[in-house]
Design a binder for these strands. Sequence first.
DNA 1: ATCGATAAGATCGAC
DNA 2: TCTTATCGAT
Length: 821
Amino acid sequence: MQSIEEQFIDLRRRYLELRFGALNEVQRRAVFKTEGPLLILAGAGSGKTTVLVNRIANLILFGHAYHAKQVGAGLAAEDVHELEKCLREQTAPSPQLAARLPVEPVRPWNIMAITFTNKAAGELKSRLASLLGQQVGGDVNASTFHSACVRILRRDAEKMGFPKSFTIYDTDDQQRVLKELYKNMNIDDKFLPVRAAASAIGRLKDRMIPPSEAAETALDARSQLVAQVYAAYAKRCRESGAMDFDDLIYYTVRLLREQNEVRSYYQNRFQYILVDEYQDTSVAQFQLVSLLCGPGQNVCVVGDDDQSIYRFRGATIENILSFELHFPGAEVIRLEQNYRSTGNILDAANCVIRNNEGRKGKTLWTDAGRGEKVRYYYADSELDEAAHIAQVIEENLEQGARLSDHVVLYRMNAQSSPVENYFTRAGIPHKIVGGLRFNDRKEIRDLHAYMSIVSSPQDDLRLRRVINEPARKIGNTTVDKIAEIAAGLEVPMLEVIKGAENYPALSRAAKALKGFYALYLRLVEAEEELPLEEFAAQVPEITGYTDMLLALGEEGATRLENIGQFVSNVKTYVDMNGEEASLEGYLEEIALISDIDSYDESADRVTLMTLHSAKGLEFPYVFIVGLEESIFPSEMSRFAPEDVEEERRLCYVGLTRAKKQLYLSSAATRLLYGQTRRNQPSRFLEEIDEELMEKESSPSLQAARMHRFSPFGSEGGGQRQNGYLDRNYNAAPAKRGNSRSAGMEARFASSLSSAKGPVKKVEGGSFLPGDRVKHKVFGEGVVEKVTPVGGDHLIEIEFEKVGRKKTMANYAPLEKMGVDG
DNA sequence: ATCGATAAGATCGAC
DNA sequence: TCTTATCGAT
């Protein structure tokens, strides 16, 4: 016979299992393991965030009640009966009973959840808020590595020899500093390109190697030079009171390592640490995590070694592979059930990833059914590839899918243009993620630089950036002279500018410099007197930036719009932060925020992005384009097997984004960087089992084969290994048979004569104003205007539902309708 | 100081 | 192909 304590413990477990009943058994095991180190190997689509959020909720609501052997004092038989009743009738426990369930619950502010992106941190916060309420959820620390470090450093940066108000250099600032150092040190950037130096220095900091050690361990001339540049760069940053992104981590680790009181403060503060995307952490980030988690070692990391795709920027997959070595006694839980994709998609992904050597090993499964086969299209050219995608999307739309259900993924941003152009001409609404980011645009950076010098007048780097932008007759020679004088006097450059007339070397430019200083004073005054958003609106006015762009006319129009956007961004910031809003706060925020965070999923558009940016997202229909050797896997990975493995993981990430249908494609010829290349289909295609795929090749390639000249064989003597092609494509086209593809093939066939021309040959002139037409995306409408444009026709159509749109006749999915429509 | 021409270089890219 | 950096001429 069990004691009431034992009965209660049993029932408490059952209650908790019911409470977290939406999770599967393995997920629940991860939630209830509250103490000690835990590695959750979470496969793609296995409900990783759900586990993270529920684990935090369990810590706060119930502590370690699940595994605990203790019950509170004064347990009565009634409590046992009531709990039994709750379980039987599935009702909520009374407040008294509920108070009895937790065992040492954790206070929310003792939990620290660390992510890589603001978006992930935001998602975590909002899901915690909806599970625990705004108040409790908000008390949990959920932030990115970098913002967590900024917060720590804002308290104690002085202990590391930096002002508390240190500025944050982004990648661009960093390169400017390096370029300047190159000049001073007489370094030829042919031998060591600035980008390479920046990256090498970053990798050293990722491994917590200080300049002195870098110099000692440098074996070849190049690493010695890197070490020299690194030392000079670190010195310069310290003098300017600035840290770059890598420094934020580096100095936080050193602070925690070297200052015992600081370390114990945070170890006491953060008793439970959770880290997301652990496969992307660097050595420095690993050290940060281990320093933060004190003797309790309550650290839970979530990651997937198969999705590690950031080796090139310092992530070390060893962190996840050796977790159990770093944290002895760690438990490992594998989440292998996938809730996202169909069986065929998952199997294809498994096929690819199993070719990698260094992995923990994990096989995703689903009970969602086989689904459609993966479809592969072997295109004639990159245009044919784009046309095929447009075609498939139109078909899917007819089946009731939405534009936003589709995503096109590519290896590099440069590949987006053919798809983008085709979509634009066909009138398929789309959105490109990534590429040039809003805050990276020149005009925005310039305005930010002006705001920076108001906030910190010693920021010489940003001063240099804008001192002659717009042109104020202050040239490079003058700026260099100022820098020289400033360095000699050990004052900021602005101080020298203030008293320009006192220095003979500056006599010629003194007037211009006085003018600039007056402008600076006007900015300072505006900042003091106006609310932040009005100050921001004044910056382009006071500095003459607006006038400069107006003078440019047409050319400056988009940049003016960007400035308008900038002002509203500042306003948004003020609205979001209310009383807390400050110039410094705004500058810090933009330094730490990227615009992929503002990726708007609600708009009904097809998304175009790189495979890298797709990590963490999912779409019903996924197109992966350019599956060609030297594109994907990329040319750079050719000789290093580890690099090919990383490409393969990237492929795995891409494949596992698809929920319903996966479309792969490659092109026989591709125009890239102005050159037409012929690439073999990617090895990753070969790795997918035949029976999981349905293959189709461009009609032109079929025709070529029929006439016994293979697409590659007849080409200028180059002996190609086309074994893969022969093996895979012979039987392919026939399979597609008589279905809807007949019309499509006819249309594609017509494109063959002009390899680069539009794919659908419709007589542009056959549309006339007044014609009723039907567009696959926009519905029905009436042609308003037809203008011949370089061999095609621009048609303006007034649609019934979406209003007036412009499309190109040969690209748009347009049909002429009967006379009465 | 600034314009225009010419040459070089070009992955993926959180914070 | 297209952008960005640097150089040389005005």
